[in-house]
Amino acid sequence: MDYLGKHISGQFDAELAHIRTQMMVMGGLVEKQLNDAISTLLNHDINLAEQVIENDQQVNKLEVTIDEACVKIIAKRQPTASDLRLIMAIIKAIAELERIGDSAKDICEIAKQEFTPEQQILLTSLDAMGHNVIQMLHDVLDAFTRMNINEALRIYKEDKRIVKNYEMVIRQLMTFMMEDSRSIPNIIIALNCARSILRISSRCQNISELIFYFVKGQDFRHVGDDVIDELLAQ
């Protein structure tokens, strides 16, 4: 079903389309930032890490630009119903994307630290978890573009698999710590990185909830999975 209909005003359509396009540009940049950040974990590519950190300013500027455009269209067009929900969903989604960009920057700060060859297994586990989250981000951006509620639900539930990845990484870190107490400083660094990756998964879940909100016109925040399944089935 096409939830993104046309309006009598062609100019209004053009303005909405421009905002949606800008959000996808921001989403593409954040996705690249995250992909590069995860890449720095295994490769210890300091130059790439520094580039990601520097490019975070572009993400921040896009958030401000899109947010201002949304405020202007609300003031000028006074949209109602689904149009207003779409604009509010975009405003909230770009805030989530900006925070994902911050997490990518944090990962790069962590990746710049020195790890011994023996400790590379820590980074390998984080790399696997990170690539699962990259796919989750890619999929939720695609679902948002099409306002595909079924795909959004699948992605929302994907968070459970990421949590299992996180728990597995934590067990590995604890084992490593018990075997070699000298590794504790790097264990703490790796733990912070795992938490950053886990937070990105939660951000993707939040964007899924915005798709539910736009399509169903209901707020799905802070409700259980069973409630979400029931509401989406209506």
Rank of each mutant, 00 (worst) to 15 (best):
M26D: 02
G27R: 14
G27F: 12
G28V: 07
L29K: 10
V30W: 02
E31N: 10
E31G: 03
E31P: 01
E31L: 09
K32W: 09
K32Q: 15
K32D: 15
Q33Y: 03
D36R: 08
D36L: 05
D36W: 08
I38C: 14
S39Q: 14
S39I: 00
S39G: 08
S39F: 13
S39R: 13
S39V: 00
S39C: 06
T40W: 14
T40I: 04
L41P: 09
L41N: 08
L42I: 07
N43S: 11
H44E: 12
H44L: 07
D45S: 03
D45A: 03
D45V: 00
I46T: 14
N47C: 04
N47K: 10
N47I: 13
N47Y: 07
L48T: 07
L48P: 04
A49S: 13
E50T: 02
E50M: 02
Q51L: 09
V52D: 01
V52W: 00
I53C: 06
E54Q: 08
E54K: 07
N55D: 14
N55V: 03
N55Y: 09
Q57C: 07
Q57N: 09
Q58W: 06
Q58C: 11
Q58M: 14
Q58Y: 10
N60Y: 01
N60F: 00
N60C: 01
K61E: 11
K61S: 14
K61C: 13
L62P: 04
L62K: 03
L62M: 13
E63Q: 15
V64F: 04
V64P: 02
V64N: 09
V64D: 06
T65C: 12
T65F: 15
T65V: 15
T65M: 14
I66E: 01
I66N: 03
D67L: 14
D67G: 15
D67C: 12
D67A: 15
C70F: 06
V71F: 01
V71C: 06
K72W: 09
K72M: 14
I74G: 01
I74H: 00
A75R: 00
A75H: 01
K76V: 08
R77W: 07
Q78I: 02
P79I: 03
P79R: 00
P79S: 02
P79M: 00
T80V: 11
S82H: 12
S82G: 06
S82P: 03
D83M: 05
D83V: 01
L84H: 04
L84P: 01
R85N: 13
R85C: 04
R85S: 08
L86W: 10
L86C: 09
I87S: 08
I87F: 07
I87K: 05
I87Y: 07
I87Q: 05
M88R: 11
M88S: 14
M88P: 03
A89H: 12
A89E: 08
A89I: 05
A89N: 11
A89G: 15
I90D: 06
I90F: 09
I90V: 13
I91L: 09
